[in-house]
Structures are given as C-alpha cells and as structure tokens.
Simulated assay, not measured.
Amino acid sequence: MTKTTSPFLRLQNEMTEFAKARDWEQFHNPKNLVMALSGEVGELAELFQWLTPEQAANFPADKKEALAHELADIQLYLLRIADKCHVNLEDACDKKLALNNEKYPVDKCYGRAVKYNEL
C-alpha cells in the first residue's frame, strides 16, 4: 500500500485539517495529545469495568456505539501523536508485528501467556 492510499495517512490529514480549522494546532503537541489519549483509554476501560469476562466477550449491543466512539477516539489520537512525532504508524506496526513474530515463536509460546523472556 502506498502512502497516498494509506487509510492512516488519510485520517492523519483529515485530523490536521480539523485541528487547523479550529486553531487547535497550538494545543496539539505530543504531551497534550498523550494526556488526551490517556483520558480516552480511561473512558474505554470504564465501558468494560464491571463486566464479567463473558459479558466483555459478548459486548452489550446497546453499548456498541459508545465502544466504537471510544475506539475511534483512541485511534485518532494515536494517529495524531504519530503525525506530530513524525512516525509512520503503519510502518511501525508492520515492524512491531515482525519483531513480535521473532520474540514469540509459535513452538515456544503456543497457549502460554508469558513474556518472551520467560519462554
């Protein structure tokens, strides 16, 4: 996928235009964006806070839209932080997946929830 067709890049560009139109660029530094992201992650956690594991796995239909909004907020803040820090998030994700494949070989970690240094 080329950069010009990347959904990440499209969203980053839209977020930049959204912020510029509101004169919010002045507030969108990495520190402030990370703080905002932390708040959104807290709002996501709140949706799951008192659910049983079974309820969480079958998230209540009447709360799905709220879940989608929180996930979108988190994704958009991540993209904004990456943009401000000049990180190609799509490339970073590809590299991290490759690294995780090395750190967690199937034959050593299959069915085990342990950190790579405990395999």
Rank of each mutant, 00 (worst) to 15 (best):
N58V: 06
E102C: 02
M35Q: 10
N13G: 10
C109Q: 08
D83G: 05
Q55M: 06
Q49Y: 09
K95M: 00
K115W: 05
K103E: 04
K20R: 14
Q75C: 11
E14K: 08
M35F: 08
P30Y: 04
A45E: 13
F48M: 06
D91A: 13
S6R: 01
Q49S: 13
V87T: 14
L97P: 01
S6G: 03
L71G: 12
P105A: 09
E40C: 00
S6N: 06
N117T: 07
Q12Y: 01
A56G: 11
W24Q: 13
C109F: 15
E40P: 01
M1Y: 08
K20L: 12
Q12P: 02
N58W: 02
T5C: 02
T52A: 07
S6H: 01
V41D: 00
E25I: 13
H28F: 05
E65D: 12
L99M: 03
N101E: 06
V34M: 10
K103H: 14
Q55Y: 07
S38N: 15
N88Q: 05
L76Q: 01
D91Q: 14
T16C: 02
K96C: 04
Q75P: 00
H28E: 14
R112C: 01
D94Q: 11
K20A: 15
E118T: 08
L44G: 10
T5F: 08
C85R: 10
L76V: 05
N101Q: 07
P30T: 03
D73H: 15
H28K: 08
D91C: 07
K84P: 08
M15A: 13
E102V: 05
D94K: 08
L119V: 09
A72G: 11
K64Y: 12
Y110P: 00
D94I: 09
G42I: 02
A98H: 12
V34K: 04
K64C: 14
L33K: 00
L76K: 01
D94L: 11
E118V: 02
K31R: 11
R80T: 15
Y116P: 03
A45T: 13
Q75M: 07
V41L: 11
C109Y: 06
F18P: 05
A45F: 11
Y77W: 01
I74F: 13
R80H: 11
P53R: 08
G42Q: 10
L79F: 03
R112L: 02
